[in-house]
Design a protein around this nucleic acid. Structure first.
Length: 273
DNA sequence: CTGTGGTCCTGTATGC
DNA sequence: TGCATACAGGACCACA
């Protein structure tokens, strides 16, 4: 499941390989590959040259010098992959973007991901991303402000970490990992946490995502790989996620898994109070 | 402002 | 072995 470190790994790979390339005529191979909110068909990209690749939270966008941007969300299983034109067509290829020198493919087994094409002036955030809060890697991220917003809520802390309108980029894996590192129970009401604790939680969330980014993200299977098809290695560093029943690396108590916030939540009952 | 539940989807794992 | 069901879940929406 791509979260900030995985999406950033993809962004870095794209930035390295596709800047300067010019779009030929893209082909939509599956209707669900295109966000219904897309302002224009993918074919409108033809002739546009790629100037930069951006990310906010889990959203990506490829800026062109034609005031058009290709926005994308990877959902559960979306991938951007570089390939040679003669390569075989991937089973789950949803949108094909032939570029000047090679092909860029949007592949997505579970089709929760999408791409979209819309007007975007360089340096501006596309409409589809404008409601998303800054992520902790953004130079303008203001921890004090976010701490304030978090503590103003009576919702459980994990739900807030997953709320992309408050802080973006964190998904189920890194929410569980951050809360374990901070020794906070996922169901703690946010307003009951001290400013210091919340500040520390944000700092740990940032750190764990940076560590994951450094090794290319977390891959459980073939559903998350980088633009060259390679896996990340952070899975081996996870402390609680996917480790139900195993001993807590800190206190040796068993890791619990509960259904919460519409997904599974992993935590240590003994040392996350 | 909240929370809840439904929706999209397919491959894998489990249960009988 | 084979079929049915559960599960994985990010974002968004309708509705209370």
């Amino acid at each position: 499941m791509p979260e900030l470190p995985e999406v950033e790994t993809v962004r870095l790979g794209l930035a390295k390989s596709i800047v300067g390339q010019v779009f030929k005529v893209p082909r939509l191979l599956h209707p669900r590959g295109l966000n219904p909110k897309s302002e224009v068909p993918v074919a409108a990209l033809a002739g546009a040259q790629i100037s930069s690749v951006h990310r906010r939270g889990k959203f990506l966008w490829i800026q062109t010098n034609e005031q058009l941007a290709l926005v994308a969300h990877l959902g559960m299983s979306g991938q951007f992959r570089i390939s040679q034109p003669e390569a075989h067509i991937h089973k789950h290829l949803r949108v094909l973007f032939p570029l000047s020198d090679f092909h860029l493919g949007f592949i997505d087994q579970r089709t929760f991901g999408w791409v979209s094409v819309g007007q975007a002036h360089g340096g501006q955030v596309p409409d589809l991303v404008s409601h998303i809060a800054l992520d902790p890697f953004d130079p303008n991220f203001a921890p004090k402000e976010v701490v304030k917003r978090i503590r103003a809520s009576n919702r459980e802390i994990k739900k807030i970490l997953l709320d992309q309108a408050i802080i973006s980029g964190i998904g189920n894996i890194y929410a569980d990992e951050s809360l374990w590192l901070a020794q906070i129970n996922p169901q703690t009401i946010a307003s009951a946490l001290s400013p210091k604790k919340v500040e520390r939680l944000l700092s740990l969330a940032t750190q764990v995502m940076a560590s994951a980014l450094a090794v290319g993200g977390t891959s459980f299977d073939e559903l998350y790989v980088n633009v060259n098809g390679e896996s990340g290695y952070f899975e081996r560093s996870l402390n609680v996620y996917g480790r139900e029943g195993q001993p807590c690396p800190r206190c040796s108590g068993p890791i619990s898994r509960i259904a919460f916030a519409n997904r599974s939540t992993h935590y240590c009952f003994s040392c996350q109070k």
